[in-house]
Design a protein around this nucleic acid. Structure first.
Lengths: 190, 190, 190, 190
DNA sequence: TATGAATGAGGTTTCATTCAT
DNA sequence: TATGAATGAAACCTCATTCAT
């Protein structure tokens, strides 16, 4: 634990990314200034451009959800278990780095930008859902995967953005149970 | 045919909206300047703010479709039929004529602001979903209503923002059928 | 007499030009910031770009000596009288707008820039000296004109840039008398 | 002959000074970057600060005209001969180290800085001209010395900065002859 | 009401300078 | 000791937005 992190490229980069994540999550792309991010990180605004080239690139790197373990690791899980895992990740988990929201939701907030939409699409369809579709049985697994993605995304939005009362008041177990019944037609044999 | 369109408020507004639609569609939000839009419309840039308040609001209005009437009328429908109707209006309707943007997404984009979030919550929970919950049988109809709302919201986002391929490629009938099976646990007796 | 000059385009432009003249004169092109000029003029820095497009253009317009009357008007004067007039203009006169220096000297201070050098050459050779050469008798009037120009320029430099003591202490009459004897070989018949 | 000049403090210093002289002479203080100088010298930019402390100090040390032999050596010359010598040194000579200009002219190019102006004044008045004044006959030799200095300075400026055509085209003999006639009233008995 | 001058915040770059190896 | 990466200040310029006429 070094008392001063000065002259430490990695630490500076990380500090910028952390600060950017929070600011972007809370105030969106346009509502966030490079100077504010730098101030939060305690460094000079110029370093944003030294390390990331542009505000857009910083955004792209800051708000970039890693493919969650549930999909990335080699473990073979059933689609039903996977759906439950994703529910945890997207809806129920605490994303402190992102101000309590899943990065995908954060990106949604800045979806006015074409680049953000493209990033969103790539992360979601090419990242999450395609791997998910591969484990789904029956016909048109892609469509079913996307509908499951829609439900997860929607739940995340309802919870964090809309602040829907019943969803937030319900116990995780209750939510999981209802969710399981809803996605059953998607993850089970037709 | 008036030789000059000056002093015609409605025409000026319409001209601004038309010009904005075109510019925004071609060059995106950031690539479009207020001055360019005003120049295209042949009016002073300040009128954008007089009539629309801000560039963002002009964007929102330029690419905004009409609010769907699905829940507004007094017709009494069963929960299952209502869900199907909403699916049509929110998800399947052809938004391309309006630039492919759903009004809820526009609000979602500004959800960094607390006022917008509150408005979103009020319209969605107190407006749409409560009426929907009243028609749902079984326990905790609110939670189920919100989960249905989440699915609809998510589907809209997937289609227009994310541009998910399978959802856009699937026939409306196919989507409706799958959707019906998914929402069955929500709209039917427990 | 308006107490406030706000919202007055002409006054703002003039204020910027005045402030720019002084700053550029004293600190050179690179030593002067747009913000400082704007602060001196009491306006926003952005107006520099609104009215002049760039710092360079502001410089070009601010430090642009009008051809002095001594050469511009149609009056036919002898070369000797003209030299005396120029001595006044370049060396002895008070150029309060330019911080006490002739614009040509001010340009000299920024002559590191190629554009400034070109502007300097054009003003001096094509403006002042060619007209002067036309009135000189004898052989190679251009060379003599340029040597006279050199003396005038040098005197200006000595006085304001170098701050030479004797030249500043001497009475104008004394300087004029000595100057007249020195330039005599240039302005008289060979 | 060492294959590499690394680890040779004196050589590095000298290389930096040489490179600095040329860059500063051609592009002025502000137009010259420390990195460019270091690149020309083939060393790391940080060495500028190791050896000279700052860019300003490097400038001061690089652009420091030695008192020319014409005045420094003990030889007793007449004022007329001296003027001719100075003409050679300041105007006609090739100052290859300084990019073809006398160091005094080089300093003039950076005279936006107060320190440079002070250095210029000291070199010129206290160095060159005072010694020159001591050899001048008649009344007010200082004033005459400064006027001679002005002519020399002005000629240098005209030649290198302004790029005056006739002065550069004329043969050295022609220039010397005309110069001699002009300075005659200064160097001769009144 | 319509105009256009004024504004200030923000993105980006350049550059002198300093620390860590 | 010499290097080069890291730093931060300052600058330019654009653009959405507001204000006075």
């Amino acid at each position: 634990m070094t008392p001063t992190r000065r002259r430490d490229k990695a630490a500076t980069r990380a500090a910028l990314l952390d600060a950017a994540r929070l600011r972007f999550a809370r105030h969106g792309y346009d509502g966030t200034g490079v100077r504010e991010i730098a101030a939060d990180a305690g460094v000079d605004p110029a370093l944003v451009f030294r390390y990331f080239g542009s505000k857009k690139e910083l955004y792209a790197q800051a708000v970039r959800p890693e493919i969650p373990e549930g999909l990335a690791d080699g473990t073979d899980r059933s689609a039903a278990v996977l759906a439950d895992t994703l529910l945890h990740e997207v809806v129920l988990a605490d994303w402190d780095e992102y101000g309590g929201e899943h990065p995908l939701l954060v990106m949604l907030r800045s979806s006015g930008r074409a680049e953000v939409r493209e990033q969103l699409r790539a992360q979601l369809c090419d990242g999450y859902l395609r791997q998910f579709a591969e484990r789904l049985p029956g016909t048109s697994p892609e469509l079913r995967a996307e509908m499951l993605g829609a439900l997860l995304l929607g739940l995340g939005v309802m919870r964090s953005v809309v602040g829907s009362p019943a969803l937030n008041a319900a116990s995780p177990e209750r939510t999981r149970a209802l969710f399981a019944r809803v996605v059953a037609p998607l993850v089970e044999e037709e």
